[in-house]
Computed example of a mutant assay.
Amino acid sequence: MFELPKINLKGKVSAQEWQTRVELAACYRLFVMHGWDDLIHTHISARIPDSDHLLINAFGLSFDEVTASNLVKIDINGNVIDPNCPFEINPAGFTIHSAVHEARHEDQCALHVHTNETIAIASLEKGLLPLSQYSMFALASMSYHDYEGLAVNHEEKLRLQEDLGTANFMLLRNHGALTMGKTIGDAFMHMYDLVRACQVQLQVMSTGMAPIFVDQSIVDGIKAQANIVHSGLTGGQKAWPAMMRRVSRQYPDFAD
């Protein structure tokens, strides 16, 4: 039995940092609850408000071990801020997250998954198709990034940033998915929509029958509607407190 170092940062960091830590830890537990985790791989990162520092999971911890206190605070170059921190981070995961946070200062949170469904759809030439209401939200702000091997090449960062642009949803070819959000709740809702869209598309394709595609005019007009339904106070932040309560009931230690 390998014991994790015991850390308690409550009351030892700013109120803004602690709130970010609690919400980010909750998001890691939601990954477990939705089956989006991948052993110790993939990442969720969040910028501490009014700061250039990011929080990310410690490399080697399963997502149900992530707590508010054991999240690692780093700068944009991947340097761990606290010299006494007993954890390190995953360089491959940091390449992706540093790239998107560097390019998107207005967004607080980035989520990255390797689910079967997102990898499958990302590996199709035409990618995500307009087959469901869930796909409408994603297609309103979708981008793609071609596979370049393990994400440890610093030169890939610029291409990743250019491909992401202003999109909130990205399918990483042969790899998985990425979503961005102005809050942790918004980024989570974006990923929920994208995963569901990929699941529905695979189920429709599995029938072998001709699908009904949503008309392009509807796709083009959905962005304003999506911004109302799934962002800000009427979207991610409306659903997010309920998600936090779900985590509290199932994993009361997440906020330690």
Rank of each mutant, 00 (worst) to 15 (best):
17 E>F: 01
53 H>G: 08
21 R>P: 10
130 P>M: 00
46 A>L: 07
218 I>P: 10
189 M>C: 14
86 P>A: 02
156 E>W: 07
210 A>E: 13
136 M>Y: 02
63 F>P: 08
30 L>F: 04
127 G>R: 04
118 T>I: 01
70 N>V: 00
91 P>T: 01
210 A>F: 05
235 G>T: 01
116 N>F: 10
140 A>L: 01
226 A>L: 01
193 D>A: 14
66 V>K: 00
114 H>K: 13
237 Q>L: 10
240 W>Y: 12
213 F>W: 09
248 S>V: 04
122 A>V: 06
35 G>F: 09
235 G>P: 12
167 A>R: 09
228 I>K: 14
74 I>A: 03
244 M>A: 00
139 L>I: 06
61 L>R: 11
37 D>E: 12
78 G>H: 03
166 T>K: 14
237 Q>R: 15
1 M>G: 15
199 Q>W: 05
40 I>S: 05
70 N>T: 02
57 N>H: 11
107 D>S: 11
106 E>P: 13
139 L>K: 10
123 S>G: 10
83 P>E: 05
144 Y>D: 09
83 P>S: 03
82 D>M: 09
92 A>E: 05
68 A>N: 07
159 R>E: 09
14 S>A: 02
8 N>R: 14
230 H>F: 12
77 N>H: 13
188 F>Y: 15
193 D>P: 04
87 F>P: 03
123 S>N: 12
189 M>F: 06
36 W>Y: 14
97 H>A: 01
19 Q>A: 13
114 H>S: 09
12 K>V: 04
256 D>G: 15
42 T>A: 08
69 S>K: 03
128 L>D: 01
48 I>E: 03
163 D>H: 13
214 V>N: 06
242 A>D: 15
95 T>M: 13
65 E>W: 04
252 P>D: 01
102 E>C: 11
28 Y>I: 06
135 S>A: 13
